[in-house]
Amino acid sequence: MFIRILTSGLLAGAAAGLVAALMQFFFVQPVLLHAELYESGQLLHFGPEPRPSAHQDVGGFDPRRDGLSVLFTMLIYTGYAIVVIALMSLAELRGAQVNGRTGLIWGAAGFLVVHLAPGFGLAPELPGAAAGDLTTRQVWWVGTVLATGIAVWLIAFTRSWFGLGAAVALLLTPHLIGAPEPDSFQSPAPSELGALFVARAYGAGLAAWVVAGSLAGFFWSRAAEGTGQTADRKSAH
């Protein structure tokens, strides 16, 4: 069981990580590199006229930097996929159907839990953006992801009003407490770049998560078929 979760997670996570890495390379990285030109002072937002062009050559493929990005994207999504499949296997015990189609919903929920919910307080940051104390932000991020994750599970799998009420409370609490904020703003990059970066980061994240969820469901259901677990489950119902 443990090994099946890991192998399914490895396959789904690596594939989704590759999708995320490609999205990152073509859509997110150019915005990030553009912002770094402002962060390093090579471009000045409110400098002397004429203002810098919005279209900058941000360089091509950097084998070391982009290679490491691919590697770490695959690592992160593999970690996510293993967690998702572990949860899928538990949901199956409660009678949930897990396959490539229902996996799409798991993926969208995963995006909500680890990207959108913490990002509601701590938006994806362009390099150079002001932010509060790092450790406090990490604690808030972890707390928000846990609270939102439990809330989504309750919404999906409880039928009681108490469960739904607890879910709403868990969804709201981190944001009522509030994310750590910076003392002052300092981003040297134009706000247009910041906004585009957040939109791109979310778009790429949602695409990768939906792929991760769907593949996780697909590989998990295939693995279960291979060991005859599906037949076992069907006969039990």
């Binding site: 913490p118 940051e125 980061a201």
Partner: peptide, 28 residues
């Protein structure tokens, strides 16, 4: 799985931070 995510996403050792920098920004 959580351990993998924490090492890749949150650990602050210098080399690890450098290597995972762009991904951490993009994945929030």
């Amino acid at each position: 799985g959580l351990a993998v995510v924490f090492i890749a996403g949150h650990a602050q050792s210098g080399a690890l931070h450098q290597a995972a920098h762009d991904v951490r920004h993009s994945t929030g």
